[in-house]
């Protein structure tokens, strides 16, 4: 009884599989609708005009002797070959040389701590908010507040809070809690790096929390329950279930976090002005200052191009590491 019933099912399946393979390739191509291409065309044109063309223009200018004396000539400025790149990287007489390497180092430190702080902090808070508790909604809403504050305002607020004599941070650390015996100076010297890293993490946390929370809530509870029954504790469940499942989310945030941090400009500029000093001068503050305040457009374009290339390398490295996660998602 059972065999005849099974047979038609199998044959039916086979037929179903065969059906899509049968139409000739020519007809399938004809059926493809060009409308989607026309729909994305305006976006593509705008991207080419406002993104690709200026970037290409910047790369061309990086090979030119383009400064205030040749400013009127723009693309007609004298060709300078690789001189701009050589002098920034190797020539200690070039005014940009020492500042460039300082800015590279500062940007690496800033990016590392900002991205690490944002992702680790974001995940930790998301795990806390994912637990059932009273006031959960209020806590989630409050956590999102820094996200709606513009970077400019964040920097202005923190610049006041960091002031060593009357700022609230030293008041809390020294006057109220007596955690420190002396008043640290945040807006001068080596601490200036922390003075921009901490507000940047504060500003970036809400988005990280939001993304991680969405990921955590989408996780099947059955897996956690099964693991619990098998005797897995909270750490092992986090290490072997939660973390692998949110790996794609970590990957995407890492990609954008590093790019965003490497291009950070608003917070240090608002906090310290056009020259944040040797301890907090990032690539973007350095490039903007040298290009536009100091009219060293060609050298600035070369530094920008190098930063852009560094980001392309980062995207390539990232792609190799997270390619599998992209396929999964």
């Amino acid at each position: 009884m059972s065999t005849p019933t099974l047979q038609p099912q199998v044959s039916a399946d086979v037929t179903r599989v065969d059906v899509p393979a049968s139409p000739p390739p020519k007809r399938r191509r004809k059926r493809r609708n060009p409308l989607p291409y026309w729909l994305i065309a305006p976006a593509l044109v705008v991207m080419l005009l406002i993104h690709v063309l200026p970037a290409a223009g910047g790369v061309v200018l990086s090979f030119k002797k383009f400064n205030l004396f040749t400013f009127r000539e723009l693309f007609g400025a004298p060709w300078n070959g690789l001189e701009n790149y050589r002098s920034i990287l190797l020539d200690s007489d070039n005014p940009l040389h020492s500042g460039f390497w300082g800015a590279v180092q500062n940007t690496a430190v800033y990016t590392f701590w900002t991205v690490t702080g944002t992702l680790v902090g974001g995940l930790a808070i998301a795990l806390l908010l994912n637990r059932k508790m009273r006031g959960q909604r209020v806590a989630r809403t409050l956590m999102l507040v820094p996200w709606i504050i513009p970077s400019y305002v964040v920097a202005v607020l923190w610049a006041f809070m960091w002031q060593s004599d009357v700022g609230i941070i030293n008041k809390v650390l020294v006057d109220y809690t007596h955690l420190l015996g002396h008043r640290p100076v945040w807006l001068l010297g080596p601490n200036t790096m922390w003075a921009i890293i901490i507000p940047s993490i504060w500003r970036g946390l809400p988005l990280a929390i939001l993304i991680f929370l969405a990921g955590l809530q989408a996780q099947p509870q059955e897996v956690h329950e099964a693991a619990s029954i098998d005797g897995a504790g909270p750490w092992r469940r986090f290490r072997y279930i939660t973390l692998p499942l949110i790996r794609p989310l970590i990957g995407v945030q890492l990609l954008f976090g590093v790019i965003y941090a490497a291009y950070q400009y608003a917070i240090p500029t608002v906090m310290f002005g056009t020259n944040p000093g040797p301890d907090a001068d990032l690539m973007m503050t350095f490039i903007v200052r040298q290009s536009f305040s100091n009219s060293l457009y060609g050298l600035g374009a070369a530094a920008s191009t190098m930063l852009m290339l560094a980001m392309l390398v980062w995207v390539a490295v990232w792609y190799r590491v997270f390619r599998r996660d992209l396929e999964v998602t």
């Binding site: 100076v185 010297g189 020259n275 200052r289």
Partner: peptide
């Protein structure tokens, strides 16, 4: 070129004052 030169001097004067305040490199 005065503008850029003033910027260069400003940065260095700033570093000197910071170091006099005990906060320099």
């Amino acid at each position: 070129q005065w503008g850029p030169i003033e910027n260069a001097y400003k940065g260095r004067f700033g570093n000197i004052l910071d170091s006099a305040a005990g906060q320099g490199k």
